[in-house]
């Protein structure tokens, strides 16, 4: 075949196949758009239900009074979520107070120290991020509740540490590693000790990304049910005592969801709205920190 014939053949094939190619391209892109639209359906449904059903629960009374058990004579008497808010605050606050320093120091250790031990711990942390949270609940139950025969709010905090510390640590480590070498070498060349370099140069430079991980981990932990369900007991009184029993927003939702009264199931939406707003608040915070690091 001569060059001219080849060219002719290619041009005719190209022209002939064009309609089919254009059509299949259009069908394919249409399918992608449909996939995108379908992806929004569940989000819309969840938001519509959480906000639609939940908004009427958002009253001062609901947020501040404690839960009540409905009775045959008062099937709608579910009270409020004051005790669950208090319980959530106690359990999560203690968890954060333990997790943040532990995770940051752990990340620092992984940054400074080399060896198999560090690799092992890091691998464990990365794997923990993906583990089903129920196994941490099972572990906390058997190692704390079974041995002490008691339920405490702070047991829940310890269980949540297993959710938070891995996420915070891996993020903080990535943050420390993203600090430019030149900055660190400048510090070292001034004769600063390693601890000074870490505390005065590396950590401040990595701060925003470290906090991203902190808020990300927290927004995940706030909504966790499985790890704390078996270890914090339940409390219908609004108390802030870490060694008392506690009910949190997710565990209250769980007990209402499997509860006997329709009014309890309906109230799940109200709690869900409060929970979603809390989770979103911290998630948005983490995004703001991400945006900040990307700008700098």
């Amino acid at each position: 075949m001569s060059s001219q014939e080849r060219r002719e053949f290619i041009r005719t094939t190209s022209a002939k196949s064009y309609r089919r190619r254009a059509l299949s391209s259009r069908v394919f892109t249409a399918l992608l758009v449909i996939a995108l639209l379908i992806a929004f359906v569940p989000l819309a449904s969840i938001l519509q239900n959480v906000v639609g059903h939940g908004i009427r629960y958002i009253t001062w009374h609901f947020l501040t009074t404690s839960q009540q058990l409905p009775s045959i004579t008062n099937t709608n008497g579910i009270g409020g979520i004051g005790n669950a808010l208090a319980g959530t605050a106690v359990v999560d606050l203690i968890a954060v107070l333990i997790s943040i320093p532990t995770a940051i120091v752990l990340a620092m250790a992984m940054f400074e120290i080399k060896g198999r031990w560090v690799v092992a711990v890091r691998t464990a942390m990365e794997t923990f991020i993906g583990l089903p949270s129920i196994v941490f609940g099972v572990f906390t139950y058997v190692s704390l509740v079974v041995t002490t025969h008691q339920y405490h709010a702070y047991f829940g905090s310890l269980a949540l540490c297993f959710i938070m510390i891995p996420v915070m640590t891996i993020n903080a480590l990535a943050a420390l590693q993203s600090v430019p070498d030149t900055l660190i070498e400048a510090g070292l060349s001034l004769g600063l000790r390693p601890s000074r370099v870490m505390l005065h140069i590396i950590l401040p430079a990595a701060r925003a990304r470290v906090f991203t991980g902190v808020f990300l981990a927290f927004s995940r932990a706030v909504g966790e049910t499985a790890p704390i369900l078996f270890v914090i007991g339940a409390s219908t009184l609004p108390g802030f005592n870490p060694s008392g029993q506690a009910t949190t927003l997710p565990t209250l939702m769980w007990s209402y969801l499997i509860g006997a009264y329709p009014s309890q199931r309906e109230a799940c939406w109200g709690i869900a709205l409060v929970l979603m707003v809390t989770v979103l608040f911290f998630n948005v915070l983490s995004r703001i920190f991400v945006a900040r690091t990307q700008r700098s």
Binding site: N49, E224, T225, A226, P250, L257, M276, V279
Partner: peptide, 24 residues
């Protein structure tokens, strides 16, 4: 904006999915 919206689904707590699944 669009991808953030979809990723919003990733931050919804499990228990809320449980409620949505069971009640809706």
């Amino acid at each position: 904006a669009v991808s953030s919206l979809i990723e919003l689904l990733a931050v919804v707590p499990s228990i809320v999915y449980g409620v949505w699944g069971a009640l809706v």
